[in-house]
Amino acid sequence: MLQSDRAYDWLGPGAYFWESDPTRAMEWARWKVERGEYSQPAVVGAIIDLRNCLDLTNREDVDLVSHAYDSFAQLQDRAGLPLPTNKSVNGDPNADLLLHFLDCAAFRHLHQLVAKAGMEPFDTIRGVFTEGDRAFPGSEIRQKTHTQIAVRSNDCIKRLFYPLEDGVIQFAAET
């Protein structure tokens, strides 16, 4: 499975999946085609065993990332280096900070701390991402809000499939 490892991946390195939202996944794929990054939009589903998951819908796991950020910020300060910043994509009408340089750096640092402590590495990271236009005036609900999973260990991907088409799931080759 293709692992993304860009400096702005919001959950850090991993193979990214939208949880239970093939519509949002296809919107993203079409957006990538419009930007000239792909020639054909496509969506693949997966059966994922989260295993050792850093789940950002869980307060304790968010606290881990927060502590990793504090440690990272101190290291950057001692080295006289600026902190990376999250940025918007050019032309984004909502000014969503889609380029997560700071978040990615905090996750990378957390993974280093986990490894240094001899702890079990995280296989997956799961988080809710707020994005898009407001659902209605005054709302904090956003039209493109979704849950994403970054799979760091390909062993967590148990099966790939193509999303429902005419009510039928079509399974892809075994992983």
Rank of each mutant, 00 (worst) to 15 (best):
P82V: 15
G91L: 04
A7K: 10
V128A: 03
W28R: 10
D103L: 13
R35I: 00
G45H: 02
L164A: 12
L54H: 11
L164V: 08
D155S: 11
E19N: 09
Q148G: 01
L160M: 14
V44L: 09
A15R: 10
Q74K: 11
A42D: 07
N94T: 14
D9W: 06
A106H: 04
S20Q: 15
N154M: 07
P13L: 04
R30D: 00
V128K: 06
A173C: 02
T175N: 13
D123C: 09
Q3R: 12
P41F: 09
P137G: 05
Q76S: 15
A46N: 10
L98V: 10
E140A: 08
R152C: 08
W10P: 06
E165W: 09
D166W: 03
K158L: 15
Y162Q: 04
P13A: 09
N52I: 02
E165A: 13
Y69P: 00
Q112M: 11
N58W: 09
F129C: 13
D21V: 08
R35W: 01
L50V: 08
E174F: 07
L99S: 11
A15T: 15
M26G: 09
C156F: 02
D21A: 15
P41A: 12
V151N: 03
H111M: 13
F101T: 13
R51F: 04
I141W: 07
A79H: 10
M1E: 07
S4K: 07
C53L: 10
F17R: 11
L102C: 10
C53E: 11
E165N: 14
Y162S: 03
R152F: 02
Q143P: 02
E140R: 13
S4I: 07
L164Y: 09
R126D: 04
T175Q: 12
E140V: 13
L56Q: 11
R159V: 10
V114M: 00
V151D: 04
I47D: 05
K32I: 03
A79G: 06
R126Y: 06
F161Y: 15
D49C: 06
H109T: 04
S153F: 02
E27W: 08
E174T: 13
Q170S: 01
L81G: 00
D103G: 11
A29H: 02
M1Q: 05
T85F: 09
A7T: 07
L11N: 08
P163N: 01
R152D: 03
L81H: 05
Q148I: 06
D5P: 04
H109Y: 12
L98K: 12
I149N: 00
L2H: 08
S66C: 03
T130P: 00
M119G: 03
K158T: 05
F122Q: 01
F161A: 13
L75V: 06
Q170F: 01
H67S: 08
L99F: 12
V33A: 05
G91N: 07
G45T: 02
L56P: 00
A106Q: 06
H146S: 07
D77W: 07
Q76D: 05
L54R: 10
S153L: 02
D61W: 02
C104I: 05
A135D: 11
V33D: 01
R51I: 03
P22S: 07
D63N: 06
K32G: 00
M1C: 08
R35A: 09
H111P: 00
P121A: 15
C156H: 03
G91R: 07
R51K: 14
V114C: 00
